[in-house]
Nucleic acid binder design. Sequence first.
DNA 1: TATTGTTATACTCTATAACTATA
DNA 2: TATAGTTATAGAGTATAACAATA
Lengths: 159, 159
Amino acid sequence: MKQLHDERDALDHLFALSAATSEFMERGLAQRGLSRARASVLWALHRQGPMTQRELSDAVGVTPRNITGLVDALEACGHAVRNPHPSDRRATIVSLTDKGNETMDGVQNGYRESASRLFSDMPEEDLAAFLSVADRLIGRVREHPPARHSTPGRTSPLS
Amino acid sequence: MKQLHDERDALDHLFALSAATSEFMERGLAQRGLSRARASVLWALHRQGPMTQRELSDAVGVTPRNITGLVDALEACGHAVRNPHPSDRRATIVSLTDKGNETMDGVQNGYRESASRLFSDMPEEDLAAFLSVADRLIGRVREHPPARHSTPGRTSPLS
DNA sequence: TATTGTTATACTCTATAACTATA
DNA sequence: TATAGTTATAGAGTATAACAATA
């Protein structure tokens, strides 16, 4: 009885934490004029360097058609550029511009500040417990349920 | 040095947990043919009973125009019905159908199973630590940053 | 034949603004 | 004058399918 209630309370907390965190992250991106979808492209380029749109498609987890649109938008606002592939004339290489790199550095610094603000005064053992539980939950949540083909758009910030 | 790394690691975990949880929840809804936006309307009706579209608009946090579209879709798939307001001829009352109630009961039972699967074998003190940390994080994440006007579409499952 | 990136098309979710019927 | 819900329009993000250029 008590245990059952605790479990449901925990799932409630998990959902609430997920929603709040998601809004938190998107608010940070919005300050720099980025949507989550566009930021996910910039993250991939920032972490892994220049790559073709096909590679971006795999890295970000959306179809090549969508990469066309996202890169169009990022090019229009000066965060990325398209260049011809040196040896494969079908392909185009997408790279970050200086502005794109500055933006992503800023996002990264923002995350550092956030991390400090959220966790710096948290007791060591609470932090450890949170990391441990989060690890287990991530694993369970990913493996168990009837896995459909991936839902798009998860970004993986904080390189 | 060590502490700084721990903080960033914790934020990383928080983002990853948020993304995984969000996919987990939407997967559960998708099994029943529901998107998050439509499920949020059904949740509001399931929790609070029949209400006008205007009230739904406030409950769900989207514009009245969007409620029109969402209710159109829910009516088309038999989960909800529109009826005239008894005293205000401008307004329409939206209610769950039997099918809508069954669907939401199923979603709720699914969440109960999920809660059990995720948390039932977790040591009491880990569960307590997670709840405590989650509470603190939700508060910090909501208050601190340059709060824009609300991002839409958070559902609040598990009544 | 297979791959890269595009055009064409469609669907969902979001928004504002203008309009109709009612209060 | 104000409110409830609609139409009209727009934009982002997702998807498939067909096609051109190239491998």
